[in-house]
């Protein structure tokens, strides 16, 4: 379905948001993804992905509190929507289905 397709990076970000519960915002997502994938990611990429996911309906958001480190600016906290959860599950089951249909000997190579 057009518009709801999850890209690899998008899936990563979506999963991270789900994992971070109430703490998912630009910086925390960036750090988490960087830590787990061991690659450097530019903050702008995280932002554009977050906004895109929100537009597609996978994410919801609200403005959080402001801190001194942020120059008095509020952060936007993201949550996963039920639709987002459903898409993640679908993506996972799709993979598992394919995994299960791979003949065993292929995986033993």
């Amino acid at each position: 379905m057009k518009g709801t397709y999850l890209g690899e990076f998008e899936e990563l970000v979506l999963l991270t948001i789900a994992m971070l519960e109430d703490e998912g915002y630009g910086i925390s997502v960036k750090q988490e993804v960087e830590k787990r994938t061991n690659r450097t990611i530019n903050l702008s990429a995280i932002h554009s992905t977050l906004y895109r996911l929100e537009k597609k309906g996978f994410l919801n958001s609200r403005l959080g509190e402001a801190t001194k480190v942020r120059g008095g600016k509020r952060k936007r906290i993201f949550f996963i929507t039920p639709f987002g959860v459903k898409s993640l599950k679908e993506a996972k089951s799709l993979r598992e289905e394919i995994w299960n249909s791979i003949p065993g000997y292929v995986l033993q190579q």
Partner: peptide, 30 residues
Amino acid sequence: EEIEGDLEEEFMLNANEKGIGKARRVYFWT
């Protein structure tokens, strides 16, 4: 607001960990 905030937060983190010059460069680049 949030983008500026995130940027600033990252800037502070970078400034503490990697030095001010690097932080400024990253900010600019981002």
